[in-house]
Write a protein that binds this DNA or RNA. Sequence first.
DNA 1: ATGTCGGCAAAATGCCGA
Length: 266
Amino acid sequence: MTLEVATFNVNNVNKRLAPLLAWLARASPDVVCLQETKAENAAFPARALREAGYGAIWYGERSWNGVAILAKDATPIETRRGLPGDDSDKQCRYLEAAVRGVLVGCLYLPNGNPQPGPKFRYKLTWFERLAAHAADLRATGHPVILAGDYNVVPTDLDVYNARSRTYAKNALLQPEPRAAYQRLLEAGWLDAIRARHPGQPMFTFWDYLRDAWPRNSGLRLDHLLLSESLAPRLADAGVDTWVRALPDASDHAPAWVTLEETIEGG
DNA sequence: ATGTCGGCAAAATGCCGA
C-alpha cells in the first residue's frame, strides 16, 4: 500500500473546479494541498469536494492567496493555520494538518514581484519564518511533508531557458530565495521530485503568456519536501502535466509523491 | 517591452497581482 500526497496551485478553486474534480477523479490522490484558492471561507466549494469523496479544511481570504488540505474519505486534523513569527501577517498562506499518520504542511510562499521592493522583502522574511518552523517540525521526529507553491526556481535546470531575459529580474529566480531553498535542503529536507528525477526539468508551471504551455516554456515552482523521518518511505514522484491542458486550466499542474505506508521490514 | 487571466473599483475601462 502506498499513500499519494499531491500539491496543486489551483489558481482560484471555484473558477477551476471542473479541472480540479477531473484530476481528483482520475489521479485519486489520498491527500491534496491546494494553493491560491482565492475564495473566502464561506465560498469554499466544500460540498462539491465532499461529493467527490474528499474531506477538507481551508483557510481563505477574498481575492488572493488561500490554502486548503483535502483527504480522500477522511477529514484532515488541523494542527496549525498561519505560519508563526508574525501575528500581524494576515495573508492566508499556511495550513497544517495530521492526515493518515503524516504531518502535512501546505504552503503558498509569496511571489515577491516586483523585485526589488517590499513584496520581495516580504517573500524573504516569510521564507525565514518557514525555515524556523520547519526546524521545529523536524525536531519532533514526526514524518512531515512540506508541500506547496514555493515560488522558487531552485536551479537553472528548473527553468526552460536559464539565459532568457524574460525571467532575469523575476523574483522567482533571484539568488536570495534560491539560497533560502537550498538551506532547507541542507537542513535535511528532501526535494522529492528532484530526488526521483535527477537531471530532468519536471516543470510544474507554464505562464498564460507567450504560448508558454504549447512551447513547454515551464518552470518548476511547486515542491514536496520530506523530513528525514519520512524520506526513506519515498516510492515515486511526478507531475500530472495533463491537467495543464484541460479547459479552464490553472497555470500550474499538480505535483505528487507516493509514500510507502510503513517502512519495509519495520 | 511583450503577452494572459481574473478580480476589483467604479464606471464599460483601467489597474493590479500573478
